[in-house]
Design a protein around this nucleic acid. Structure first.
Lengths: 115, 115
DNA sequence: CCGTATCCCAAATGATACTG
DNA sequence: CAGTATCATTTGGGATACGG
């Protein structure tokens, strides 16, 4: 992807696609970032609890992608039973700041539609 | 979907999925909303120009979904040649307001990573 | 010009079982 | 507990051509 030849304010711009936007467009990604943002540090199982529609494998894939993109860190503790904690990087936190207003609005909006 | 049993600020919340988030997670949806937001009124062909990676059919599908969800209106002028213009509804504009900071950040972030 | 209809393919996701 | 591996399946999405 990586096709940014434009300024959003310029109606003549070409397009607004970017790698980050492409990642965000994948299922659960925005949700995952928000859950981590709220918890600060969170374990794999906790994420699963919060995202019951995501399968184990999908969640794992998403976390890998987020880590590879530099939005999330993974810390492993060699204990028995094993423990892993995910946390946002600084860039991830910046992203989260822009995401939370969106997600909160989406939730409010949906409740307005439903009620 | 529609599984909202939680408050984002409550670490004990269940999950944050919503129909809106599910729609936003589809390819090009966020981009389309932003392009319409910037142009205010925009024709189908113009959208295609701004999103060259999206096929005609996908773009059409997305616009239908956005219209069905109440974020976009479609106005058709019976002229020759035909003209159609898309515009954000009030809800769509609210969404756009939360989307643009995110998209602009994503673009800036990407340029920081690249340079 | 603005799509829809069709067909087809690749990628994405889910379910499950199994391992360190 | 925290995944990975595997397999099946769906869905998304692209290309194209045609209709209003």
């Amino acid at each position: 992807m990586t096709q940014i030849d434009c300024d959003l304010d310029d109606p003549g711009c070409y397009c607004v696609l970017s790698d980050v936007m492409e990642l965000l467009g994948k299922k659960y990604v925005m949700d995952i970032v928000c859950v981590i943002a709220v918890h600060e540090r969170v374990r794999f199982g906790t994420l699963e609890d919060h995202l019951p529609d995501a399968s184990t494998s999908t969640l794992s894939t998403r976390l890998d992608e987020l880590e590879a993109a530099g939005f999330v860190t993974r810390e492993q503790y060699d204990e028995i039973p094993p423990r892993v904690e995910y946390e946002l990087t600084d860039r991830g936190a910046e992203l989260g700041e822009r995401l939370e207003p969106l997600v909160e609005w989406a939730i409010d909006d949906q409740q307005r539609q439903t009620s």
